[in-house]
């Protein structure tokens, strides 16, 4: 057979494309359910870890079902906030953090343009923000609210979840992850030993919001409640994480403050 003829080449290419496409489409559909479950379970596990739950998931015989069971047990409510701290409709679990982060960047750029972009337009952009909150009820019956953050490290995106106890001041736990930070340096933010430092820190100094800062060389005595030890050799990642935490908590602030004030007025009664 003459394999150099045009018609042969074209028929050959067509048949090959059809076969390959069929094989791949079949594999993709067959595995899709499993893949989507993996992605969802990873997020659920991150949320649970941020409240220091399900720490032994890696040793569970069937990790996916274990995580799903624990998630259903502890995290029953979730909702979306707008930038004013009001609840809006939607599925908090499905909120794409990156989209919110891109919007935040646009808002930042617009508000630094010295009035070229009108206040009204900036507020219009802010109104599109969707900030997910997950409420976890721990074994002692107390609630902890889980807040998200997302930003950029040295090589790519970093993100995480911070859980705050029912006084809306003390951090209960935190979890962070990254796409491509240098393992052992910036990548340490994904290590539990680093994340455990956040537990017990406070985001308010008196009534003023301080956020939590990663400080090179460890927390200073004056701010021991508001600083954690930064990652050595991961300056850019630490800086990115600082910014991400502060930026997101500031957007959550109206909600956190309202809850905190309600708490303290309850106490004074």
């Amino acid at each position: 057979m003459d394999t150099n003829k045009n018609s042969y080449t074209i028929i050959y290419a067509t048949i090959m494309v059809v076969i390959v496409a069929a094989v791949l489409a079949f594999a993709s559909t067959a595995l899709k359910g499993k893949q989507e479950r993996n992605v969802a379970v990873e997020k659920q596990l991150n949320l649970l870890t941020s409240v220091n739950l399900a720490e032994d998931a890696a040793h569970a015989a069937d990790k996916n079902s274990y995580v799903e069971k624990e998630y259903a047990k502890y995290i029953k409510t979730s909702f979306i906030l707008n930038y004013k701290g009001e609840k809006i409709d939607g599925d908090a679990f499905g909120v794409n953090l990156k989209e919110q982060y891109d919007l935040m960047k646009k808002i930042d750029a617009a508000s630094q343009s010295d009035g070229k972009v009108s206040e009204q337009k900036i507020n219009g952009m802010k109104a599109q923000l969707r900030l997910p909150v997950f409420v976890c009820i721990t074994n002692d019956g107390k609630t902890a609210d889980i807040f998200s953050c997302y930003g950029t490290g040295l090589w790519g995106p970093i993100w995480g979840y911070l859980s705050i106890a029912d006084d809306f001041n003390t951090i209960k736990g935190a979890v962070f992850d990254d796409e491509g930070e240098t393992p052992g340096l910036g990548g340490e933010i994904a290590e539990r030993s680093f994340q455990m430092q956040f537990a017990g820190k406070e985001i308010f100094k008196g009534d003023a919001f301080t956020s939590i800062t990663l400080k090179k060389g460890g927390a200073t005595q004056a701010n021991i409640k508001h600083e954690v030890d930064a990652i050595s050799g991961g300056t850019m990642t630490s800086r990115g994480l600082n910014k991400a935490i502060k930026q997101w908590l500031e957007y959550y602030l109206p909600y956190i403050k309202a809850k905190k004030d309600a708490n303290s007025s309850n106490l004074s009664k």
Binding site: M1, T3, N4, T9, Y12, A13, M16, V17, V20, V23
Partner: peptide, 18 residues
């Protein structure tokens, strides 16, 4: 023996990519 010579590289790439 069936691969048309002109699209040889592409055919190989497609097999590998699959």
């Amino acid at each position: 023996k069936t691969i048309p010579n002109r699209i040889r590289i592409i055919v190989q790439l497609v097999v590998v990519a699959m």
